[in-house]
């Protein structure tokens, strides 16, 4: 089977979500092929975070469905949902590390409780994942002793340890000081090169341009545009995306 005829690993079909009385997601569909990195871009409040959380069923969508490797997530029941979630890694803007656990135990915890690995096995795996994100020597430190960039890398290691089929990243560098953004983006780029399937919300246009083959522009709960960065971002394209990115770089300075 050629790559083109392979079924997508993740399909999001016609998802809608109302929170409060506001329609936050309006009939959103997208799909990810194995090894693909797609980037979600759009103004604040456009629904990127909500979309990622709906895909993960952290917030169950009101309508539509999420299909992972041909299996729909809905109707799986609570136990089924726990299993579904294990197969999708989630990275949050604020890292969300467990404050009372060392870096090592942050990674090992779900391996032990969810995957039922032995303590030794889990720690061994945790150390390998930490090494993979360049934190081999930080395993014994607590979140309060780590920099933001290090925390985010621990959270990536924690997600990777569960062997996810897909990773969802919600603005993984937005809470970081500028000088720490690079180390996290480096890890993400490396992951992408190694074949991880990812959907990432970000404002790092330069990064997106170099690594993704599709940018999805979200606004007011809808996918306004989607396409390869070359097409959407070229200055003369007149796309909403190019317009938005021009405003972004005006705000934050070029090169970001």
């Amino acid at each position: 089977m050629s790559a083109d005829s392979m079924p997508p690993i993740l399909e999001v079909k016609n998802i809608s979500k109302t929170l409060g009385s506001k329609l936050i997601l309006d009939d959103v569909s997208l799909s990810l092929n194995k090894g693909e990195l797609k980037v979600l871009i759009g103004p604040s409040g456009g629904g990127k975070s909500t979309l990622l959380q709906c895909i993960h069923y952290l917030i169950p969508p009101d309508a539509g469905e999420v299909v992972l490797e041909g299996r729909p997530a809905s109707g799986a029941g609570r136990g089924g949902l726990c299993a579904f979630r294990q197969e999708i890694g989630m990275i949050f803007q604020d890292f969300n590390l467990f404050d009372h656990l060392t870096a090592e135990n942050n990674v090992a915890m779900a391996l032990r409780k969810v995957k039922k690995h032995s303590k030794a096995e889990a720690l061994e795996r945790a150390r390998r994942e930490l090494a993979r994100v360049g934190l081999a020597d930080k395993g014994q430190l607590y979140p309060a002793q780590l920099s933001g960039g290090q925390k985010q890398r621990v959270s990536i290691a924690r997600a990777l340890a569960m062997d996810p089929k897909v990773m969802l990243l919600d603005e993984p560098t937005s809470a970081l000081d500028p000088e720490l953004i690079g180390e996290v983006l480096g890890v993400i780029a490396e992951l992408s090169r190694s074949g991880m399937t990812m959907l990432m919300a970000t404002h790092q246009i330069g990064f997106a341009r170099n690594l993704t083959n599709e940018i999805i522009f979200m606004e007011a709960g809808k996918i306004a545009e989607a396409g390869p960065p070359a097409a959407l971002l070229s200055p003369g394209s007149g796309s909403r995306t190019a317009d938005f990115c021009a405003k972004l770089s005006e705000l934050m300075g070029p090169g970001r």
């Binding site: 726990c82 299993a83 294990q86 989630m90 949050f92 604020d94 890292f95 969300n96 404050d99 969810v114």
Partner: peptide, 21 residues
């Protein structure tokens, strides 16, 4: 911090496991 509950859920921990650990 609420985010930790989300992270626990995202990793597939049950409510009881999240509570205990």
């Amino acid at each position: 911090k609420k985010g930790q509950f989300q992270a626990a859920k995202a990793l597939g921990l049950t409510r009881a496991q999240t509570f205990r650990t």
